[in-house]
Amino acid sequence: MNAAEAQASGERENGGSTGQPLIELAGVARRYDMGEVTVTALENVDLRVGRGEFIVVLGPSGSGKTTLLNMIGALDSPTEGTIRILGEDITRASRAQLFEFRRRSVSFIFQTFNLFPALTALENVEFGADVSGRPDARELAAETLERVGLAGRGGHFPHELSGGEQQRVAIARALATRNPILLADEPTGELDFRTGVQILELLHEQTHTEDTSVLVVTHNREIARVAHRVVELSSGRIVADGPNPGGPASISELRW
């Protein structure tokens, strides 16, 4: 490893980005008009995320974590501010461009998995690869399923899998897209501790092996310990944003 690589590795480990940020939010706000009342979900949010970062977005219920994720994933648009992903300002993008962006740039992992019940595990993963235009979708799906430890379960429908297996299929579906950004909304919320740890390991691994930037939204502070960086939200504002003091913990140390 040379110095540049060491610096890049160190920056990654310490939550810093290398080069141009992958994700850049500037002055982002999201307000909802509810008749007489205006609800502010996000206010004046500035955020930069580099390649290969593992970021945990922490905050209590109603703090704006999911709204932030939806903004980055182009599922929602800000009331104010700009969002640049891979250098492109998505706040100015057309509807068609946003669909294209979601196919090529971001992938989602949901708390309730949201697998397609009519497709087998392998086909769910293959869907992810298809959507992002991979010509070798079937082979890639099989390989990705193997990576998440479900090589023998590809022919099963979601209802025939356990919760942890379903979430792994969901992760595999997101990984099969080979998109540079992975957005996970409470990925361990429905799972027991042991399974949750396995999921975190899979997610964390992506930052090393694929240089994928992973943003995990959670209210579980224990999970935040394994992050390169923790962004804390409260009432729609970022109240803290920085690396874990003492560096990210090992996943094996986690307890909840």
Partner: peptide
């Protein structure tokens, strides 16, 4: 609707 929402989230038009 959930399935359709997931499709849209993955960029299916």
């Amino acid at each position: 609707r959930r399935e359709n929402g997931t499709l849209l989230a993955f960029g299916i038009t």
